[in-house]
Nucleic acid binder design. Structure first.
Length: 256
DNA sequence: ATGGTGGTAGGACCA
């Protein structure tokens, strides 16, 4: 089973590229973030014609998450249920495909360390952790993936000194990510690549991709049964090149 | 590199 997570930065603006990429890579399951459209504006026909079922949890202009799958999508959950904070922002969708449960997250960016949205981000990550604990089992094949907007450590940062304690790299953010992992989830990418210099996001504003200045903030976290069955993981850099790319590259993983 | 680019909008937001 080939799975992928990709912040597409508008599913409609990226539709031609998304369709080309689906045709080329033929993933079995795709977790999309930042679809940036309401459910009725989701390009249903194009996705269906490409051979995918889908479940979308979208809103106008901002956020929005979707799951695409060649096989049946079951037990869809939209948003965090039962938590303290209702989901006025649509950042979470979960579903099962075959024997794997997927939780797709678009984590709050946080703007800058100390900003109100920064504290929202840390609090929200705690809520998500609790919700996952209450609703899913790490004894099963569980994949918690998406745009986390957090680097694990300095290996994920092109210029660690410049980013020291900055947004996406601060110690509290990294601790929140580690805390989520502590329920029994591991970073699938690091099973295969221990070295520094692998990135998934490059800032449009600084022409980061052109200069190789990126961060690794998109992750596939896996429960032990999923992690053990994981045979490969890679960042698809090709999908970040060319005309009108998203600012994020897809991250893929193969499950046995 | 404290500016810059991109998406959704149709003026500022968010990233």
């Amino acid at each position: 089973m080939l799975i992928a997570t990709w912040n597409v930065n508008s599913v409609r603006a990226r539709l031609p590229r998304l369709l080309d990429w689906l045709e080329k890579r033929k993933p079995d399951v795709v977790l999309l973030q930042e679809t940036k459209c309401q459910d009725e504006a989701f390009p249903e026909e194009a996705i269906s014609d490409a051979g995918y079922n889908f479940a979308h949890f979208g809103q106008k202009t901002y956020n929005g998450v979707a799951i695409l799958a060649r096989k049946r999508i079951e037990s869809v959950q939209r948003g965090i249920t039962g938590g303290a904070n209702p989901d006025e922002e649509r950042r979470v969708i979960a579903a099962q495909v075959e024997d794997v449960v997927f939780v797709n997250l678009y984590v709050i960016n946080g703007q800058e360390v100390g900003a109100p949205r920064y504290f929202d981000k840390l609090g929200w990550l705690g809520d998500v952790r609790e919700w996952i604990c209450a609703n899913f089992s790490v004894q099963e094949k569980l994949v918690v993936a998406g745009d986390f907007n957090i680097t694990f450590d300095d290996r994920d940062v092109h210029d660690p000194e410049r980013w020291r304690e900055k947004i996406l790299c601060s110690t509290p953010e990294r601790e929140a990510l580690a805390s989520l992992c502590s329920i029994g989830l591991k970073d699938a990418f690091r099973k295969f690549h221990e070295e520094a210099g692998h990135y998934t996001w490059w800032d449009f504003r600084t022409k980061g991709f052109q200069y190789g200045a990126g961060l690794r903030i998109d992750h596939l976290l896996m429960s032990p049964p999923a992690f053990e069955s994981c045979l490969a993981s890679e960042v698809d850099l090709e999908a970040r090149g060319g005309e009108k790319p998203s600012d994020h590259a897809p991250v893929l993983a193969t499950l046995a």
